[in-house]
Amino acid sequence: MTTEAERVRTVMPPPPAYPPSPPPAPPARRSAAAAAVCAVLGLGLVAGAAVGGRLTAPPSRTAAEAAYERGGTLWSDVPVDELFPRTVHAPDAGPGGASRDWTRLGVAPDGDCAPGLDPALAAALRPAGCRRLLRATYADATSTTVTTVGLLITGTDRAGMRALRSRVAAGRLDTRTDMLPRPYAPPGTVADRFGDAQRASWWLAVRDDLPLVVWSVTGFADGRTGTPLQPAARAVAPDAASDVAQAGLGHDARALAARIESAFRAAVRR
């Protein structure tokens, strides 16, 4: 005769047999796994830092900014023959598209701007500052006319040059007869009598992509005075009939300044 406890044990099934828990991983395996996790986390942090660095680093200079900066110091390390070539040829720069040629007579010592400009013009350009004034004088192929070309290197930024260009344009400073550039007369040359009284035509241009004001002033080589002044912008007009226009002085002033500016720009790009 079975007891009640024996009947319960007979009816109830035995408990399920669960698989045993895996043994703990050896210490070396746990270390390798931890190292892998740390490596993944470390790569993520490095990548994040790199991205953050790219987002917060200052932007690199553009080509225009680099050229502007280079233009402000070019005078200090470029040979003078690169800025003021010994000879200049312009195949169609004269009246009626005639060819023009010039020979350099001398280069003035570089210095401040005051000696190269009338006081009123120097005052008008002063807000942009003056790092250096570079000047050279040329004679045409017949030694009839002489022209001084100036490169005024300013000390302002591009915004300052834009403001200066606007002031010059608004005031028509490039046509004011009381605001002229001054000649440089190399001694012992055909230009040695080229002074303020011999000025006949001139050109002035403010550039805002470089710290540069380009100008030129021209006259007759024989020392004559009393020639009525006429800005190059007017002397090169097709209907201009003045002595300055007929002699091509306006063409000399404009074309020679343009060639010297081109030489300056070429030096900036090198």
Results as ranks from 00 to 15, higher is better:
Gly160Gln: 07
Ala28Tyr: 01
Leu152Asn: 02
Gln246Cys: 00
Gly188Val: 12
Leu210Ala: 14
Leu180Ala: 04
Arg135Asn: 06
Asp112Leu: 04
Arg30Ser: 13
Asp243Cys: 00
Leu41Tyr: 08
Pro24Gly: 11
Arg234Gly: 00
Ala258Ile: 01
Ala36Cys: 13
Tyr138Ala: 11
Ser166Gln: 09
Val268Ala: 12
Ala136Ser: 12
Arg135Lys: 07
Arg30Trp: 05
Gly71Val: 02
Ala205Thr: 09
Leu212Glu: 07
Met1Cys: 08
Ala17Ile: 09
Met161Gln: 13
Arg158Tyr: 04
Leu164Ser: 03
Asp208Lys: 04
Gly155Glu: 07
Arg165Leu: 03
Glu82Arg: 13
Ala34Trp: 08
Leu173Gln: 02
Ala64Leu: 13
Leu45Ile: 13
Ser76Leu: 10
Thr73Ile: 04
Thr2Cys: 09
Ala170Gly: 11
Ala35Glu: 14
Arg193Phe: 08
Gly48Asp: 12
Ala57Val: 04
Pro13Leu: 14
Asp92Gln: 13
Ala185Val: 05
Pro127Gln: 06
Ala67Asp: 15
Thr227Gly: 08
Arg207His: 13
Thr103Pro: 07
Ala136Thr: 09
Val206Leu: 04
Gly44Lys: 03
Asp209Arg: 13
Pro127Asp: 06
Ala49Cys: 10
Trp75Glu: 10
Arg61Lys: 09
Ala267Glu: 09
Tyr184Trp: 11
Val88Ser: 07
Pro115Glu: 03
Arg165Trp: 00
Arg165Phe: 00
Thr175Lys: 05
